[in-house]
């Protein structure tokens, strides 16, 4: 085994310090007793208390979670369908347009997506609120889901599906019993990606939300524009903690699953012998 050269050690250390120190500072100062976020004046958890009593923030958080759960579920269903069509659909009228519409939102600046959706909603006479944000978020996240799912669909063995069809199952049964379990990890990570994208989104939500529905990023943005505040630090710390726990546990689960799959494969080999 090779040892890392001093150059690589330095670049990794500096690189990860750059990535993590700002967030660590943010977390540390959320426990600051003083109102100033740049001067340390003792440990306190009072900003978490005021945060939970701040009704506007709590309402916004609730709206955000609702929007994220609904839109990521829709996006996962639509995105998986779209991926299946792209990979397995064969030729059909307007296929190029379809794949273009899947990839374009990935590179479209958010300001343009937001503006165009808002103009559509106004043209249709839809009242802006939770529903319009859900529609907007579903649209851009389904494209991310379909990219994630189609990369998995491309790599898996098609003969498994064909075997199921040969053995008498309907196409839907073959999908549900064979394809879906195999692509499940990609579908789940697609859902998680859609969920975080929706949770994070400021620009598109600002265009498509109305006065009746404010999401957390909109709330944070308008608070942050006035300058740094310890309450926002506390809120950020909670969000960072949730994401960290989520990502680490997701990677542990996938590691365990792949270990189990290895064991299953070994067991199957032994039985075959």
């Amino acid at each position: 085994m090779k040892r890392l050269s001093w150059f690589n050690v330095t670049s990794l250390t500096l690189g990860f310090a750059f990535l993590y120190i700002p967030m660590i500072i943010l977390i540390v100062y959320s426990f600051n007793a003083g109102k100033l976020v740049t001067v340390w004046s003792g440990f306190s958890t009072k900003w978490y208390g005021t945060l939970f009593q701040n009704e506007a923030f709590m309402n916004a958080a609730w709206v955000t979670i609702k929007v994220a759960v609904i839109s990521s579920t829709f996006a996962t269903i639509l995105g998986t369908m779209a991926a299946y069509v792209l990979v397995r659909g064969g030729r059909f009228m307007g296929r190029t347009l379809f794949s273009g519409m899947i990839y374009a939102p990935l590179v479209m600046p958010e300001v343009i997506t937001g503006l165009s959706l808002l103009l559509l909603f106004i043209g249709l006479g839809l009242d802006r609120g939770v529903i319009t944000i859900v529609l907007a978020h579903t649209t851009f996240s389904m494209c991310y889901v379909s990219v994630v799912v189609s990369s998995r669909l491309v790599s898996f063995d098609r003969s498994l599906e064909e075997a199921a069809l040969d053995l008498g199952s309907s196409p839907w049964e073959a999908f549900r019993l064979v394809t879906l379990p195999i692509i499940a990890p990609a579908v789940i990570s697609g859902w998680l990606l859609a969920f975080t994208l929706s949770l994070d989104d400021l620009v598109i939500a600002s265009f498509t939300s109305g006065p009746s529905a404010t999401t957390l990023p909109i709330k944070i943005f308008s608070a942050v524009r006035l300058g740094v505040s310890p309450e926002i630090n506390a809120l950020s710390t909670i969000m960072i903690a949730i994401v960290t726990v989520g990502v680490i546990s997701a990677s542990l689960v996938s590691k365990r699953n792949s270990l189990r799959a290895q064991k299953d494969a070994q067991a199957a080999e032994r039985t075959a012998e």
Binding site: L12, F16, L19, Y20, P22, M23, I25, L26, Y29, L36, V37, T38, V39, T196, L199, D200, L202, P217, I220, F221, V224, G227, V228, I232, N233, S236, M239, I240, V243, T244, G246, V247, I248, S251
Partner: peptide, 30 residues
């Protein structure tokens, strides 16, 4: 592990990561 350390910030809110720099770079900042 290194890979996860790179991806983790990507899952954290964009807005929060930008906000983190406001306290560092301001005139009275760290």
């Amino acid at each position: 592990t290194l890979m996860m350390l790179v991806i983790l910030p990507f899952w954290t809110s964009f807005l929060i990561r930008v906000y983190a720099w406001m306290g560092i770079l301001s005139t009275e900042g760290l």
